[in-house]
């Protein structure tokens, strides 16, 4: 309508001339929308992929005999860690009934188990760490110990069931407190 009126008013005048229109478009709403969507995607996106720790368990032996042989082999080189509930941690060297070094309590700090591990790892050749967790232990404790293996760069370790002997020793130690 506006255009029509314009035409008529200029009819008798000079040559018809098109009004120069600006080519600029108001981008503000578009930018608004753009940033709205950006914020949405930025808030919903997850950049951090989860970290993982790899674990290899031994193939389950089919007989009991194998286990005894293993124990006999390891006796002098076995470093045992017992993970207990209430964030308590114990270690001993050797076999449960005849330990080379008796059951000792330690903790999860750098001066605790890490120091012992580093010491023993340098003094004992081919040391094998046996990690045993009692039923009271929580998952975090065990992961912490597995992590400790990575930190101290110990390649030979095993996650095994706790034996009745170990539990007995642990009970005795706790009673003595």
């Amino acid at each position: 309508m506006a255009e029509l009126a314009e035409k008529e008013s200029k009819k008798k005048g000079k040559k018809k001339r098109r009004k120069k229109m600006s080519t600029r478009v108001d981008m503000t709403p578009m930018v608004d929308l753009g940033f709205l969507l950006i914020t949405f995607f930025m808030l919903t996106t997850t950049f951090s992929k989860p970290q993982t720790m790899e674990i290899n368990l031994p193939v389950k032996p089919k007989g009991e005999v194998v286990e005894e042989q293993e124990n006999a082999l390891k006796a002098s080189k076995a470093f045992n860690i017992i993970v207990d509930g209430e964030n308590r941690l114990f270690w001993y060297l050797g076999l449960p009934h005849e330990p080379l070094e008796p059951l000792t309590e330690t903790n999860y700090t750098a001066d605790g188990i890490r120091k012992v591990l580093l010491e023993k790892n340098s003094s004992i050749q081919d040391m094998v760490v046996l990690i045993k967790a009692t039923d009271a232990a929580v998952y975090k404790n065990v992961v912490d110990i597995l992590d400790e293996m990575n930190i101290s760069n110990i390649k030979r370790y095993a996650l095994i069931d706790i034996t009745p002997d170990d539990l007995e020793e642990l009970k005795n130690l706790k009673q003595g407190e």
Partner: peptide, 9 residues
């Protein structure tokens, strides 16, 4: 729990 492992999944 946390660990020092940096392997991504």
């Amino acid at each position: 729990p946390s660990s020092i492992s940096e392997i991504k999944l």
